[in-house]
Computed example of a mutant assay.
Amino acid sequence: MDRAVVMQDDGGLADLYFYLATGAGKPDPSRKPDFVRKALTEDRILDLEAKGKGSLAITSCFGCGASKSTEDTLTVVYRNSKFLVGGYSRNWDWNIQKSDGTVETTIGDCDINYLTGKATASRDLEDGRPVKGRFKPVPLKDWSYEKRPKICSF
Protein backbone atom coordinates (compact mmCIF):
# COMPACT_ATOMS: atom_id res chain seq x y z
CA MET A 1 0.00 0.00 0.00
CA ASP A 2 1.25 3.48 -0.88
CA ARG A 3 0.30 6.72 0.85
CA ALA A 4 -0.08 10.30 -0.33
CA VAL A 5 -0.14 13.24 2.05
CA VAL A 6 -0.87 16.90 1.35
CA MET A 7 0.39 19.55 3.74
CA GLN A 8 -1.10 23.01 3.34
CA ASP A 9 -1.34 25.91 5.73
CA ASP A 10 -4.48 28.00 5.51
CA GLY A 11 -4.08 30.14 2.40
CA GLY A 12 -0.61 28.72 1.68
CA LEU A 13 1.00 26.53 -0.92
CA ALA A 14 0.21 22.81 -0.93
CA ASP A 15 3.08 20.30 -0.70
CA LEU A 16 2.53 16.71 -1.82
CA TYR A 17 4.37 13.74 -0.26
CA PHE A 18 4.36 10.13 -1.49
CA TYR A 19 5.35 7.14 0.64
CA LEU A 20 5.67 3.93 -1.37
CA ALA A 21 5.11 0.41 -0.01
CA THR A 22 4.02 1.56 3.45
CA GLY A 23 1.91 -1.49 4.18
CA ALA A 24 -1.44 -1.45 5.91
CA GLY A 25 -0.05 -0.48 9.30
CA LYS A 26 0.21 2.90 10.93
CA PRO A 27 2.67 5.16 9.08
CA ASP A 28 6.03 5.74 10.74
CA PRO A 29 6.36 9.53 11.26
CA SER A 30 10.17 9.32 11.07
CA ARG A 31 10.14 7.82 7.57
CA LYS A 32 11.27 10.11 4.78
CA PRO A 33 8.95 10.38 1.78
CA ASP A 34 9.89 8.64 -1.46
CA PHE A 35 8.83 11.70 -3.49
CA VAL A 36 8.04 15.31 -2.60
CA ARG A 37 6.46 17.95 -4.82
CA LYS A 38 6.70 21.31 -3.07
CA ALA A 39 4.33 24.15 -4.00
CA LEU A 40 2.04 21.95 -6.09
CA THR A 41 -0.71 24.59 -5.94
CA GLU A 42 -1.71 27.68 -4.02
CA ASP A 43 -5.40 26.78 -4.42
CA ARG A 44 -7.20 25.01 -1.58
CA ILE A 45 -6.96 21.21 -1.77
CA LEU A 46 -10.44 19.73 -1.49
CA ASP A 47 -9.85 16.02 -2.01
CA LEU A 48 -7.38 13.22 -2.60
CA GLU A 49 -9.00 10.19 -4.21
CA ALA A 50 -7.43 6.89 -5.21
CA LYS A 51 -8.52 5.95 -8.71
CA GLY A 52 -8.15 2.76 -10.69
CA LYS A 53 -4.80 1.47 -11.95
CA GLY A 54 -2.85 3.12 -9.15
CA SER A 55 -3.71 6.72 -9.93
CA LEU A 56 -4.47 9.54 -7.51
CA ALA A 57 -6.82 12.45 -8.25
CA ILE A 58 -6.01 15.70 -6.43
CA THR A 59 -8.84 18.22 -6.55
CA SER A 60 -8.33 21.87 -5.66
CA CYS A 61 -10.35 25.03 -5.99
CA PHE A 62 -9.96 28.76 -6.21
CA GLY A 63 -12.95 30.73 -5.00
CA CYS A 64 -14.75 27.48 -4.14
CA GLY A 65 -18.25 28.45 -5.27
CA ALA A 66 -17.81 32.22 -5.09
CA SER A 67 -18.64 34.49 -8.03
CA LYS A 68 -15.17 33.79 -9.41
CA SER A 69 -14.25 30.14 -8.99
CA THR A 70 -12.30 27.37 -10.65
CA GLU A 71 -11.90 23.70 -9.79
CA ASP A 72 -8.89 21.71 -10.95
CA THR A 73 -8.26 17.97 -10.78
CA LEU A 74 -4.75 16.68 -11.33
CA THR A 75 -4.42 12.93 -11.85
CA VAL A 76 -1.05 11.53 -10.83
CA VAL A 77 0.18 8.10 -11.91
CA TYR A 78 3.30 6.10 -11.06
CA ARG A 79 4.80 4.51 -14.16
CA ASN A 80 8.31 3.14 -14.75
CA SER A 81 9.42 4.36 -11.30
CA LYS A 82 8.33 7.96 -12.03
CA PHE A 83 5.43 10.09 -10.87
CA LEU A 84 3.66 11.58 -13.89
CA VAL A 85 0.71 13.84 -14.55
CA GLY A 86 -1.62 11.44 -16.34
CA GLY A 87 -4.61 13.77 -16.51
CA TYR A 88 -5.79 17.28 -15.82
CA SER A 89 -9.27 18.76 -15.81
CA ARG A 90 -10.52 22.21 -14.99
CA ASN A 91 -13.88 23.90 -14.86
CA TRP A 92 -14.61 27.54 -14.24
CA ASP A 93 -17.50 29.84 -13.49
CA TRP A 94 -16.34 33.44 -13.57
CA ASN A 95 -18.86 36.25 -12.99
CA ILE A 96 -17.79 39.85 -13.53
CA GLN A 97 -19.99 42.72 -12.36
CA LYS A 98 -20.01 45.41 -15.06
CA SER A 99 -20.38 49.13 -14.47
CA ASP A 100 -23.91 49.12 -15.97
CA GLY A 101 -25.07 46.63 -13.31
CA THR A 102 -25.10 43.58 -15.58
CA VAL A 103 -23.06 40.46 -14.95
CA GLU A 104 -20.83 38.88 -17.56
CA THR A 105 -20.47 35.14 -16.97
CA THR A 106 -17.76 32.95 -18.42
CA ILE A 107 -18.09 29.20 -17.90
CA GLY A 108 -16.25 26.30 -19.41
CA ASP A 109 -14.16 23.23 -18.83
CA CYS A 110 -11.33 21.17 -20.21
CA ASP A 111 -10.30 17.56 -19.74
CA ILE A 112 -6.92 16.22 -20.81
CA ASN A 113 -5.86 12.59 -20.69
CA TYR A 114 -2.09 12.71 -21.04
CA LEU A 115 -1.91 8.91 -21.14
CA THR A 116 -4.08 8.59 -24.25
CA GLY A 117 -3.09 11.98 -25.68
CA LYS A 118 -6.72 13.08 -26.04
CA ALA A 119 -8.47 16.20 -24.76
CA THR A 120 -11.85 17.94 -24.83
CA ALA A 121 -12.89 21.50 -24.05
CA SER A 122 -16.12 23.47 -23.85
CA ARG A 123 -17.13 27.10 -23.54
CA ASP A 124 -20.40 28.43 -22.21
CA LEU A 125 -23.06 25.70 -22.25
CA GLU A 126 -21.85 23.74 -25.28
CA ASP A 127 -20.79 20.10 -25.03
CA GLY A 128 -17.09 19.32 -24.81
CA ARG A 129 -15.42 19.01 -28.19
CA PRO A 130 -12.24 17.13 -29.05
CA VAL A 131 -9.11 19.28 -29.10
CA LYS A 132 -6.48 18.84 -31.77
CA GLY A 133 -2.98 18.35 -30.50
CA ARG A 134 -0.76 15.79 -28.85
CA PHE A 135 -0.66 15.60 -25.10
CA LYS A 136 2.05 13.52 -23.44
CA PRO A 137 2.52 12.68 -19.76
CA VAL A 138 4.40 15.34 -17.81
CA PRO A 139 6.80 14.45 -14.98
CA LEU A 140 5.13 15.59 -11.76
CA LYS A 141 8.35 17.32 -10.71
CA ASP A 142 8.01 19.59 -13.79
CA TRP A 143 4.25 20.23 -13.56
CA SER A 144 3.04 23.77 -13.13
CA TYR A 145 -0.50 25.10 -13.36
CA GLU A 146 0.96 28.06 -15.22
CA LYS A 147 2.13 25.65 -17.96
CA ARG A 148 -1.28 24.03 -18.45
CA PRO A 149 -2.53 23.91 -22.06
CA LYS A 150 -4.19 27.05 -23.38
CA ILE A 151 -7.48 25.19 -23.85
CA CYS A 152 -7.78 25.22 -20.05
CA SER A 153 -7.57 29.00 -19.76
CA PHE A 154 -10.41 31.44 -20.12
Rank of each mutant, 00 (worst) to 15 (best):
Q97F: 06
P29F: 08
R31A: 13
W92K: 08
L56D: 13
R44C: 04
V6R: 01
A121R: 01
Q97Y: 01
D111Y: 08
C152N: 00
D124T: 02
V77K: 13
G117M: 13
G25E: 01
C110W: 00
D100K: 10
D124Y: 03
F135W: 08
R148Q: 03
D28V: 00
L125D: 11
R148V: 09
P139N: 13
F154C: 10
P27K: 02
W92P: 04
D15V: 11
K147M: 07
D142G: 05
C61K: 05
V36F: 04
M1S: 12
K32G: 15
S144A: 15
L40P: 06
C110N: 05
V6S: 01
T41Y: 14
P137A: 10
Q8Y: 01
V6E: 12
L20R: 02
L16E: 02
M7W: 09
D47N: 07
C64P: 01
K136V: 08
L13P: 15
V5L: 11
L115N: 11
E49F: 14
F83N: 14
G52Q: 02
R123C: 04
D9K: 13
F35Q: 15
W92L: 07
A39M: 09
P139G: 12
E42L: 07
V85R: 01
P137S: 15
A50P: 06
E49D: 10
L16K: 08
R44P: 04
K150I: 06
L20N: 00
A50I: 00
G25I: 00
I151N: 06
K150W: 04
P139Y: 02
A50K: 06
D72L: 08
P139E: 12
E104I: 06
G65V: 03
R129E: 14
T22I: 00
A4K: 09
S122L: 00
S153R: 07
G133Q: 11
R31H: 03
A4W: 12
S69W: 00
A39R: 13
D127S: 12
D43E: 14
L74K: 04
S89E: 15
G101R: 07
G23N: 01
G108S: 14
Y88F: 14
R79K: 15
